[in-house]
Simulated assay, not measured.
Amino acid sequence: MKKIALFASGSGSNVQAIADSVQKGEIPAEITILVCDQPDAYVIKRAEKLQIPVFAFRAKDYSSKAEFEREIVQKLQEAEVDYIFLAGYMRLIGETLLNAYGGKIVNIHPSLLPAFPGKDAIGQAFTARVKITGVTVHFVDEGMDTGPIIDQEMVRIANEDTRESLQVKIQQVEHQLYPKVIRQLVTEASRGEGKK
Rank of each mutant, 00 (worst) to 15 (best):
F7S: 02
Y83W: 03
I93W: 12
D151Y: 09
Q77C: 00
V22C: 08
Y89F: 13
I31Q: 13
K75A: 08
D141W: 04
K196G: 13
I149T: 11
D37G: 06
F68D: 10
R46I: 01
L98W: 09
A87F: 00
P117G: 11
A59M: 11
V43I: 02
P53A: 03
A17F: 14
K49T: 03
I44N: 05
L50H: 02
K75L: 07
V54Y: 02
K104L: 08
K24L: 12
K195M: 09
I182A: 08
V35R: 06
G134N: 00
A5P: 09
V155G: 09
D161H: 10
L34K: 10
I44Q: 03
V54E: 02
D141M: 04
N107P: 15
F57K: 04
K49I: 05
A19V: 11
K119C: 11
K24R: 10
V186D: 15
P39Q: 07
L76Q: 09
A41S: 14
S165F: 15
R70V: 12
E80N: 14
K45L: 03
D151L: 08
I157R: 06
P148T: 03
A29C: 07
T187G: 01
S13W: 08
I149E: 08
A29D: 04
K104W: 06
E142Q: 08
E193R: 12
V181S: 03
V35K: 13
I84V: 07
D141P: 14
T136K: 06
A59L: 13
Q152A: 15
Q77R: 15
A56G: 10
R91A: 03
D61M: 06
D61I: 06
G12S: 04
Y62V: 04
A87Q: 00
G102F: 01
S13I: 11
R191E: 12
E26Q: 13
Q16C: 09
I122P: 15
Q176L: 14
P148E: 10
K169L: 05
D20F: 11
T32N: 12
T32H: 07
I33H: 12
E26L: 05
A125D: 02
K65S: 12
E95R: 14
E71M: 12
T162K: 07
A29P: 02
K131R: 10
I108F: 14
P28E: 06
F126E: 01
V181R: 07
R70K: 09
T187K: 00
R46D: 00
A100Y: 14
L177V: 10
